[in-house]
Design a protein around this nucleic acid. Structure first.
Lengths: 133, 133
DNA sequence: CAATAAACTTAGAATAATTCTAAATTAATA
DNA sequence: TATTAATTTAGAATTATTCTAAGTTTATTG
């Protein structure tokens, strides 16, 4: 999926005007904004919307796998347009979050062993530290 | 470190009565309780304490690596007495959190590649799903 | 197409985890 | 002992998020 492809169709999800705009905003701001940052970004556009709606839209997008939540400690939840498997590196000196894609062929089961029959619905890997600039 | 070893000494941290009791409570309740659950557990003991103090103590213990935070979505932060490297499996059908130790020899770098000079201060791996009972 | 139902949006109120404040206490240091 | 620094505390404040109830839009059904 290209960054320009805002005409996302998600199976099972009604792509309303608001959801489309929230998704577009996230596509155009790949620095993992929070819900209220997204809300602010949309304030001066032609499609401002309620903060509750931003939350609702993000929830729907997350539920359908188009968007990922980023949970860093007790900071406000941030959102990630990158729906492919990846880890998040939280640079403590800048506060920025970097996406780190998995090595080709790498799998969670390289690290840990899960009982037979385990269903994994979500995997979140967050690394905190510093990256040389 | 054994589960019975409550006389923890953490370099650089003053082990106050309250911190010791919070740590002991966590040792005796390994189901990843939240701050207010810990506070409740201590309510009827001989050393009840302010919720703010529970937060303060946990913060100090986390900061010194004796305790780990478990961040699952927007649920209240839970705390883990297991200070060795491990992942957390959040069973969605029961709400329980299981510690999953890494395979021997396994390393984060099996999964991802970090730029030279990167300093990792914390790694958090949370898996959501279901485990057969 | 008209009528009905379901899903969505919205503003504002409510919730609840966490942090802050300022005063009191305790422990460390000189 | 006197002084300083760190910790504890109760309660207030903060704030991200969820809830509510009403209005709107979209889908569905006859």
């Amino acid at each position: 999926m290209k960054a320009q492809d805002h005409h996302l169709q998600v199976p099972g999800m009604r792509m309303t005007k608001q959801r489309k705009e929230v998704y577009r905003t996230l596509m155009e701001n790949q620095d993992h904004p929070s819900a209220s940052e997204i809300h602010n970004l949309m304030k001066d556009t032609e499609s401002p919307m309620s903060l509750a709606t931003v939350y609702n839209c993000l929830e729907a997008l997350v539920e359908h796998g188009a968007v990922k939540q980023v949970n860093i400690d007790r900071e406000p939840t941030r959102y990630c347009q990158n729906s492919t498997p990846h880890a998040h590196f939280h640079d403590q000196s800048t506060g920025t979050i970097h996406d780190i894609t998995f090595k080709p062929g790498a799998s969670l089961t390289d690290l840990i062993e899960l009982p037979k029959g385990t269903e994994v619905t979500n995997l979140e890997i967050s690394i905190k530290g510093t990256i040389p600039s």
